[in-house]
């Protein structure tokens, strides 16, 4: 009681601090870390400049037709393999949660097999399919030589796309599971069929959860397409190799390829931001940060 009546009386200068100067906290650790990083970067830059790198080769080959062709092929392969991966991923995820034991067993088996083998190995299996199936087709109707279809492009697209589908299906499945059961019920209540409900109500909401990891996978795929160089698909790394086999400027051409990979990934990261914003519409957390 006395304390309560006392305190206003003592409010002379102890509580009069609103006019004092604020001294921000010093982040000593951060400053030290930044200094170390700058030093290391400077050292690295020096090493590259005194190292045996002919920067003129890097500059000249950056826009060489063979490199740009390779870049286009890398992008085409990324788009093709990722499209297959996403379509398969959605189909497999829906099969998995369908409640139909046959479909969900197929889905589980698919993920088990294609996530279990290295992508490079799968690519080579497709490319060498002719060894076990010299021809393909429906007996009596049409037949075609396997080597004629299994071009490097097709083999790489199937190998990368099908193994990607196994990963993407898990992303899609977690997206589907993230949608509240009340949403499924509300969609059923207005008479939607299963497919319409998935397409119009569930998947658009699941996208919010799915886009960040799928964006990650697209970026991973840009780099994974370099595996296709092994089966002679002319993507950017393959073309860079062909050039350095001829002119022996190995590191310069690898730097050229790195530059383009980094450029593509940067553009994709920006695109991902906008896609995330689109699928976040109507959600509080996203709007608050815009």
């Amino acid at each position: 009681m006395t304390a309560a009546t006392d305190s206003p009386a003592r409010a002379d200068d102890k509580y009069e601090i609103a006019h004092l100067k604020l001294v921000p906290k010093r982040h000593i650790g951060r400053m030290v870390a930044a200094a170390i990083v700058l030093l290391l970067l400077a050292g690295l830059a020096r090493a590259f400049s005194v190292g045996q790198i002919e920067w003129s080769y890097v500059r000249d080959f950056l826009f060489a037709p063979a490199i740009l062709d390779g870049l286009v092929n890398t992008l085409v392969m990324t788009a093709a393999a990722m499209s297959i991966g996403i379509v398969l991923g959605v189909v497999i995820a829906i099969m998995r949660i369908s409640g139909n034991p046959v479909l969900s067993s197929i889905a589980i088996g698919y993920v088990w097999v294609f996530r279990g083998a290295p992508a490079l190995l799968q690519l080579m299996l497709w490319f060498n399919l002719a060894l076990i199936f010299p021809t393909m087709g429906i007996p009596g109707l049409f037949e075609i030589r396997t080597v004629d279809i299994m071009t490097p492009f097709v083999a790489a697209m199937l190998g990368l796309g099908i193994s990607q589908g196994a990963y993407t299906s898990e992303v899609v499945r977690s997206g589907l599971l993230s949608v509240d059961s009340g949403q499924y019920e509300a969609a059923r209540t207005i008479g939607m069929t299963q497919m319409k409900m998935l397409r119009r109500i569930v998947l658009p909401q699941a996208m919010r959860v799915m886009v960040p990891p799928i964006g990650n996978e697209v970026i991973g795929m840009v780099k994974l397409t370099s595996l296709a160089s092994v089966i002679q698909y002319s993507e950017i790394l393959h073309n860079a190799q062909i050039i350095y086999f001829a002119n022996t400027r190995v590191l310069e051409l690898l730097l050229v390829a790195s530059f383009w990979y980094l450029a593509v990934v940067s553009v994709l990261s920006v695109g991902q931001h906008y896609i995330e914003r689109y699928f976040g519409r109507g959600s509080k957390s996203i709007r608050a940060s815009m």
């Binding site: 009340g182 019920e185 509300a186 969609a187 658009p204 909401q205």
Partner: peptide, 15 residues
Amino acid sequence: RRIGMVFQRFNLFPH
């Protein structure tokens, strides 16, 4: 389709 339903937790489509 002939039976409407209103839920305790609304269940509007948030998107």
